[in-house]
């Protein structure tokens, strides 16, 4: 059974070839008809990438973005019928794509956009009531060993470049107005937090992002603070609490 082998292989080839065994009722060239399928596959997958990476596309312009995305689609077609996550390796592809090497911040910008999609569709969870957190204040020693569970939609981004500012500058009506003022070589970090139905991106200190990553990997409160670069702890906690991002905690015996 090799019909679909031929058909599938030809779908992702760049030649004008046509798999064997096709025909048209009127004797017209089946290759031109087959091209409709090849076009559907390529264009729909490029469209899916454009949906996930709108800021990356805006930075590059549509023509460059789609030409690059087309090469990615050829190299890495989806493995799952669920397209929401298609292109999760696109940032790595961008990073290794020589024609884009003049824009070294692009891969991290793309990573930020994929995290946005992940935060958007992540599982729902209820925030811990503030009173429960306040209850922890009663025992300062126990507090150091508390392990916080964070919302599944929480994501962080850290970059050597100002990708958070770039992303923010592209939201809203006049995307490019403030672009000239951004110092691209200033590293940034961000927290992605879903409140209700919206994902908010908040610029945070790099240390705060490290702290949150440590909490997510299961570190205790004190260990997470210790392993991060200096940052404003109360600010970071206020952000998490206000965003409903702390969903649970466990006390260590």
């Amino acid at each position: 059974m090799s019909d679909h082998d031929d058909f599938a292989a030809t779908l992702l080839s760049d030649t004008g070839d046509c798999p064997p065994g096709l025909r048209a009722w009127n004797g017209s060239d089946p290759a031109q008809r087959f091209a409709v399928y090849r076009n559907n596959v390529t264009v729909s997958l490029i469209d899916a990438l454009a949906d996930t990476y709108p800021v990356t596309q805006a930075m590059l312009g549509e023509e460059f973005f789609r030409a690059m995305a087309r090469l990615y689609v050829r190299a890495e077609p989806p493995r799952s019928p669920v397209l929401a996550w298609y292109g999760d390796s696109f940032p790595d592809f961008v990073q290794g794509f020589p024609p884009a090497s003049g824009l070294p911040y692009l891969a991290d910008l793309a990573r930020l956009e994929m995290r946005y999609v992940q935060a958007y569709h992540a599982a729902d969870a209820s925030a811990l009531p503030m009173a429960d957190l306040a209850g922890l204040l009663a025992d300062a020693n126990a507090l150091a060993h508390v392990r916080f569970s964070l919302h599944p939609a929480l994501e962080t981004v850290r970059s050597r470049y100002a990708v958070v500012s770039l992303w923010i500058a592209h939201q809203g009506q006049t995307p490019a107005n403030s672009l000239g003022e951004i110092n691209l070589d200033l590293g940034e970090a961000a927290l992605l937090i879903r409140q209700g139905l919206e994902v908010e991106i908040v610029r945070i200190e790099a240390g705060a992002a490290q702290f949150i990553d440590c909490l997510r990997s299961g570190a205790s409160f004190a260990d997470a603070v210790h392993s991060a670069a200096p940052f404003d702890l109360s600010n970071a906690l206020a952000l998490l609490i206000r965003g409903g991002a702390i969903t649970h905690f466990t006390l260590q015996e």
């Binding site: 019909d3 679909h4 599938a8 779908l11 399928y37 596959v41 729909s44 077609p77």
Partner: peptide
């Protein structure tokens, strides 16, 4: 129709004999 083959998903409704 078919849309997956050998672990790849083509995101199109493809024809069969």
């Amino acid at each position: 129709a078919w849309s997956s083959h050998a672990g790849r998903f083509f995101n199109d409704l493809l024809p069969l004999p």
